[in-house]
């Protein structure tokens, strides 16, 4: 009985607070003038980014240079971790030697097979519809990086490397992504625009699909760079500790 009274008290208090809050929190009626400007301009308007998704327009167009520097920060973070875990040729060959055998109970492995394909499809969809719906390159890339992480957890990193995705390849894909971002940012300079200019240099739509000019390119390249950058770091982090101790000559 005591327990029931306690539960009822909690229930009544929660309901009371919820009803009170629902009536007393009023959404603001006026937009900030800057917000109004973005909402009116991102698709229609004179300073259009040709994208119906306002957040992506702000990220990669109106405040594009800011995002470019954020990408540079991320680039430095990945470079930093790669430098800490630097191995020479023989050492990285030795780090790849191992048994690609599932470490977890069977159901986990079976579900991993399903979810890896699923995550890849979802991440591609998030990244490539970034100019149409919420999402974008960084979000898609972070989702993409979960797929190799799951394979590492369920099968060990050696399975990933045997299937052709080793650290070098991941770094190459990441470099392609970063190079693409840099080229997309610099292209407007060639046609006497300013850096990271979007309209009217890049096509606003193709085959009836709104592309948002350069937004779709930035999203695609950021997707590759973030996904592959995380993958490279995950591959390094999953090298067993004993091997690192051996490389570094640590003795107990």
């Amino acid at each position: 009985m005591k327990r029931l009274t306690g539960l009822l008290t909690i229930l009544i208090i929660t309901l009371g607070v919820a009803i009170y809050l629902a009536q007393n929190i009023i959404p603001p009626e006026n937009l900030h003038p800057l917000g109004e400007y973005y909402l009116e301009n991102s698709y229609f308007g004179e300073h259009s980014a040709k994208s119906p998704e306002v957040v992506t327009s702000i990220l990669w167009d109106y405040r594009g240079v800011d995002t470019l520097f954020e990408t540079a920060v991320f680039f430095l973070a990945i470079i930093g971790s790669l430098t800490i875990f630097r191995l020479n040729r023989e050492q990285s060959e030795e780090a790849k030697q191992g048994e690609p055998k599932p470490q977890l109970p069977e159901p986990v492995v079976v579900v991993t097979k399903l979810t890896v394909a699923m995550i890849l499809a979802v991440s591609a969809s998030i990244a490539l519809h970034g100019q149409l719906t919420p999402g974008g390159g960084f979000q898609g890339g972070s989702a993409l990086a979960v797929a190799p992480l799951l394979v590492i957890a369920a099968y060990t990193k050696y399975a990933l490397e045997k299937n052709g995705l080793d650290k070098t390849r991941a770094i190459i894909i990441r470099s392609i992504g970063l190079l693409g971002i840099a080229l997309t940012a610099l292209t407007p300079l060639l046609v006497s625009g300013y850096i990271m200019q979007n309209q009217p240099i890049f096509p606003g739509e193709a085959l009836g699909v709104p592309l948002g000019g350069s937004l779709v390119l930035y999203n695609l390249f950021e997707y590759l760079a973030v996904g592959a950058g995380f993958t490279a770091v995950f591959l390094l982090l999953s090298i067993p500790e004993e091997k690192f101790k051996k490389f570094l000559g640590v003795r107990r």
Partner: peptide, 23 residues
């Protein structure tokens, strides 16, 4: 839309190729 159907074909192809050994 037909554009989405075609884009889906391309990406499903890439994903199928990338994950065929895991599946």
């Amino acid at each position: 839309s037909s554009q989405e159907l075609i884009a889906g074909l391309i990406f499903a192809g890439i994903i199928g190729y990338a994950t065929k050994d895991i599946v």
